[in-house]
């Protein structure tokens, strides 16, 4: 069975990657191949890495408050590159009120603080392209 490949990335300027690392580790322990790209990634860097690595899922962690700007830009770029078949999810400090807007703009799911990692893992397993 082939492993699910996930790109874990941190867009924008906040330098807190503990959450991203916890997620990366949890996905690894769930048998996935996690491509970890590190801090302060631009939209272009994230989408390009996702394409080169041929990932099934992009998981971004964002704590800076810039989610309403950056996440839709990632979905736009994915469309531009004909790569919108890649499952795109986000996590971090994101107010509930912003979630519907993000979902309308190409983000499949948002996982806020306190979500058990198993919930995220199950979501990815169920929703990646088969």
């Amino acid at each position: 069975m082939r492993p699910i490949r996930v790109l874990v990335a941190k867009p924008g300027l906040d330098g807190h990657d503990r959450g991203a690392k916890v997620i990366a580790r949890a996905l690894r322990d769930a048998g996935m191949e996690v491509i970890y790209t590190g801090l302060r990634q631009t939209v272009d860097q994230i989408v390009n890495a996702a394409i080169e690595e041929d990932v099934d899922c992009i998981a971004v962690s964002i704590l800076s408050g810039a989610h309403n700007t950056l996440l839709p830009k990632i979905s736009e770029k994915l469309k531009e590159e004909n790569a919108e078949d890649i499952l795109f999810i986000g996590g971090g400090v994101i107010p509930d009120d912003d979630i519907p807007f993000l979902k309308e703009n190409g983000v499949s799911a948002i996982f806020t603080p306190g979500t058990p990692t198993t919930v995220t893992i199950d979501y990815i397993k169920t929703n990646v392209r088969k």
Binding site: P3, A24, L27, R28, G31, E33, I35, Y36, T37, G38
Partner: peptide, 12 residues
């Protein structure tokens, strides 16, 4: 991982 088949690929 020899246990789960998972991996962290961090060279990028």
């Amino acid at each position: 991982s020899p246990f789960t088949g998972g991996a962290i690929l961090g060279d990028r």
